[in-house]
């Protein structure tokens, strides 16, 4: 796309008071529709645009994450051809590591340990289905507010806020590049509008040429590395003897896995992970056998926080429960207390 076309596009967007993603086939007909339905459509359309931008745009940039009092940064290459998505993330801070992603396949190189962690993340494929599901709760539990326009990393962007309807979840403020819809900045906000965590591009080159073949070659070149694949078995909570008897509005069980063997820096063998989500925030419940040697020093205590992520531990008879999620501590308390052993 030539620069002139971009300028024209930008101008037309500026002149139109309504957000870019409401203009198109659905157009203004939604305005006449029932208001709650319209809100749902608006939020879904906005999320769809976010998702499409990631599938259709190629870019190179520097990404900065600040959570709590720590700050991390990485160099990012993102390429896609409509079907395939490929990404490379070089951590610029902390332990040296490079993460490659090819659709749902993720490979992390740890050069200092000469270890490669190879895994498949099926949750990546969930998103469009998540949105299309009749019981999709995102629009029910978050309100979308268009806040205006701001410049991020030198790019004009639109700012929207996803306001939670209750205190069980956090809010989000999202900056998307005006023309492409690529997310350039994301903040997680607590009830007092305080920023718990922020992720943003400090520099971003949209449309920068990135070779998918080269990235693929680098991703597969594991020579000299020990390849490690975490062994996970798909299971159900019921099958593992667990029941969730609590009520956390909007959160639905998404998946349940069991770890077969424990590797270095991995949860213990036989740890069951049960994941819940309200569409934006997710909570993992980890159930494992109580081990006095490992757990007694971690006496059940107040929830801990790391940016937007909170954590809570609890002993339940011979079991040790850990609840982790990007939700307020009180939500984790409901999760941890609602868990019951059936057998």
């Amino acid at each position: 796309m030539s620069r002139r076309v971009l300028v024209l596009l930008g101008l037309s967007l500026v002149l139109n008071a309504s957000p870019a993603w409401t203009q198109s086939e659905v157009g203004r007909s939604t305005v006449k529709a029932q208001s709650s339905r319209a809100e749902e459509t608006t939020l879904s359309r906005w999320l769809m645009r976010l998702h499409d931008a990631a599938r259709q745009r190629t870019y190179v940039g520097t990404f900065v994450v600040s959570a709590g009092d720590t700050m991390s940064s990485s160099r990012i290459w993102h390429v896609c051809d409509g079907q395939q998505q490929m990404e490379r993330i070089d951590a610029l801070s902390g332990v040296a590591r490079t993460t490659f992603r090819h659709n749902d396949r993720v490979v992390t190189f740890l050069p200092e340990r000469r270890v490669v962690i190879s895994e498949t993340r099926e949750s990546f494929g969930l998103f469009p289905n998540l949105l299309n599901r009749a019981d999709s709760s995102i629009a029910q539990f978050y309100r979308l507010q268009v806040l205006g326009r701001e410049r991020v990393a030198g790019l004009a962007s639109e700012v929207v806020q996803l306001v939670p309807v209750d205190a069980l979840r956090f809010g989000y403020k999202v900056w998307t590049e005006l023309e492409s819809g690529v997310v350039v900045k994301l903040q997680t906000l607590d009830a007092a509008q305080g920023v718990l965590e922020q992720a943003a591009f400090s520099e971003l080159q949209l449309g920068e040429p990135v070779s998918m073949d080269r990235l693929a070659a680098l991703m597969d070149n594991t020579e000299g590395y020990q390849v490690h694949k975490p062994e996970l078995v798909k299971t159900t909570a019921a099958q593992e003897g667990w029941l969730f008897n609590g009520q956390v509005a909007g959160f639905k069980p998404m998946a349940c896995h069991k770890r077969v063997s424990a590797g270095q820096s991995e949860p213990a063998a036989n740890t069951v992970q049960w994941v819940f989500s309200d569409g934006l925030a997710s909570v993992s419940l980890f159930m494992e056998s109580f081990d006095a040697a490992r757990h007694s020093k971690m006496a059940a205590h107040e929830p801990m926080a790391m940016g937007a992520t909170h954590m809570l531990t609890r002993r339940l008879g011979p079991w040790w429960i850990t609840a982790v999620g990007e939700v307020p501590p009180k939500t984790l308390v409901i999760f941890a207390q609602g868990l019951e052993r059936k057998k």
């Binding site: 949750s123 949860p267 954590m311």
Partner: peptide, 19 residues
């Protein structure tokens, strides 16, 4: 380790994919 596992398999968020 649990945090990492949560990140890996608990990422069922609509905001997960792009950011």
């Amino acid at each position: 380790a649990l945090l990492a596992a949560h990140r890996q398999f608990g990422g069922t968020s609509a905001l997960q994919m792009p950011t």
